[in-house]
Design a protein around this nucleic acid. Structure first.
Lengths: 191, 191
DNA sequence: ATCCTAACGCAAATATATTGCTTTTATCCC
DNA sequence: GGGATAAAAGCAATATATTTGCGTTAGGAT
């Protein structure tokens, strides 16, 4: 039921993994996630169903596995060194990226493969290094940890994406970023 | 695939619903969520599998449906009228309730039944009236909406519950509540 | 009381998931 | 290179779950 990281990282195992991942991507585009089945993926990838079941456990885990790999972890923001500016710019980009059709699909797919007990997924871990980069570039504001920033900026986006009925308000993440930056500034002893 | 609210709210339909819900609760306690199957639930409830498939669509939707009903929506906090005090007290209670085994299971079950497109679920809607009650009892602080409070207090709890590896830090929600209350205070013109 | 039909039961047909055993083939070690 | 080893894949039989057509039951309305 759990994804085994392929003990053998090359050769046939790798080819099978690539073929299966590609098949999932193609078929989701063709028939949609809801009509996707394991036997279908197996046939398209040229493997047997039992291979998929043994390696991934079930369809949700497989799709979740594929979805995770579409996460971008880099920070395509030009850093100015000004904390409020940098964080706001990144926050805006983050919200746009998550609140898109592929972004929402990815969140949905990752959650469907979640087993509920172990660590949820890489969704947050992909975000932390970026936030830390922005923090250190700014040198970093008093009393602000990456955790605090993620709680303030990322959490509302994810929460509303999943649980809220209404679409995300424009500027939600950007304003949260500016707010948390402003609070940090008030904590700085006024020289 | 979607939960049809029983068009007939009484009689046999109601009895079937109650029997099925009870069976789900019992069997989850006995064999665990992961070993639960539709035929098993059907047998325990004294109905046929096709009844369950036709009415709920699949197991995840059924379990999600049951989980939603275990949400408590009332506010068991004695309101003092002081915003910071009341919100902090509720936040602490909320975190404790969500960060328990039944709380985490509920979140997990609700998400597993999520179809990813429509409104996620009642998890947030159950919280909003409570926050609004606290806000109005305090009369309400300048520049603070229920949304803002939920973003600040509830979002980090839910996000970490789902996506974070580490256990919830003690006092996470309480401190977030105090922080948002403090910010609100600074917005009030100093009489 | 009688009609209407949503909801259920039954059972057959289909689809999906699991598993024991065999075969292939990376990888390791000489 | 060449052989030993075991992980990973294939195959096929089996078990389990899901879907579906059709007849039946019983709320709820007239």
């Amino acid at each position: 039921m759990s994804v085994r990281q392929a003990v053998r990282p090359g050769g046939r195992s790798l080819r099978v993994q690539q073929a299966v991942h590609a098949a999932v991507g193609e078929l989701i585009a063709e028939v949609g996630r809801d009509a996707l089945t394991v036997p279908q993926v197996a046939q398209r990838a040229g493997v047997t169903s039992s291979t998929i079941y043994r390696r991934w456990g079930d369809l949700a885990t497989l799709v979740s596995d594929v979805a995770r790999r579409s996460l971008r972890t880099d920070c395509p923001i030009r850093l100015t060194g000004d904390f409020a500016t940098d964080l706001a710019a990144w926050a805006e980009m983050y919200q746009d990226e998550m609140d898109s059709t592929p972004g929402r699909n990815m969140v949905r797919d990752v959650l469907r493969g979640w087993d509920g007990t172990t660590a949820a997924c890489a969704l947050l871990e992909a975000v932390r290094p970026v936030v830390e980069t922005i923090l250190t570039a700014a040198g970093p504001p008093v009393g602000l940890s990456a955790d605090r920033v993620i709680d303030a900026v990322v959490a509302p986006v994810l929460m509303r994406l999943i649980f809220a009925d209404a679409p995300l308000p424009a500027g939600l993440a950007r304003e949260a970023a500016l707010r948390v930056a402003a609070v940090a500034r008030t904590n700085v002893p006024p020289s």
